[in-house]
Simulated assay, not measured.
Amino acid sequence: MDSINPTAMFAALSQETRLQVFRRLIKAGPKGLLSGEIGEQMGVRQNTMSANLAILLNAGLIRNERQGRSVRYFANIPAISDLLRFLLEDCCGGDSALCNPLVASLASVSEDQR
């Protein structure tokens, strides 16, 4: 859990626009989306979108890459996998056999993406 801050992640996702942005970036996959594309798709002004992206970025849920004058954003899949693994570590009333397959699959996705 040292690599993630679950409280910051949930706080970032507790606002509707940020949750929608996050879901769009997950759906976009490895190609990501330019910040302007996200704002246009959602009908959100540039300064508002920039503020929302900064919150998601600071929470560790997304990452970005500068491409010339533009910035492309991506879902931070390893951090999302770590968060899900954190949530499921002690699940199923101590019967880890019920959750182990899911936790193991999240671990392999996280390691593959690093």
Rank of each mutant, 00 (worst) to 15 (best):
M1C: 09
D2G: 15
I4K: 01
P6K: 02
P6A: 03
T7N: 01
A8Q: 06
F10W: 00
A12L: 00
L13E: 03
Q15G: 10
E16N: 10
T17E: 12
R18A: 05
L19F: 13
Q20G: 08
R23Q: 09
R23P: 01
R24S: 07
L25V: 03
L25K: 07
L25N: 00
L25P: 06
A28R: 05
P30S: 13
P30H: 12
K31P: 09
K31F: 11
G32E: 02
G32V: 01
L33D: 14
L33V: 13
G36C: 01
E37H: 07
E37P: 07
G39Q: 04
Q41T: 08
M42C: 06
G43V: 06
G43K: 04
V44I: 15
R45Y: 14
Q46M: 11
Q46W: 10
N47E: 00
N47H: 02
M49T: 06
A51H: 12
N52V: 00
N52C: 07
L53D: 05
L53V: 07
I55L: 06
I55W: 02
I55H: 05
L56F: 01
L56V: 04
L57R: 10
L57C: 07
N58F: 05
G60A: 14
N64W: 13
N64H: 14
E65M: 05
R66V: 13
R66P: 07
Q67S: 09
R69A: 04
V71Q: 14
R72H: 02
R72G: 05
F74P: 03
F74C: 06
A75R: 11
A75G: 11
A75L: 09
I77W: 06
P78G: 01
A79E: 00
A79S: 03
I80K: 08
S81L: 03
L83S: 00
L84H: 12
R85I: 15
R85N: 13
F86V: 12
F86K: 12
L88N: 07
D90L: 08
C91P: 10
C92T: 03
G93T: 09
G94F: 01
G94K: 04
S96I: 14
A97L: 12
C99D: 11
N100D: 12
N100I: 10
N100C: 09
P101G: 01
L102C: 11
V103W: 02
S105W: 01
V109K: 09
V109R: 09
S110H: 00
S110N: 04
D112V: 11
D112K: 13
Q113Y: 08
R114D: 12
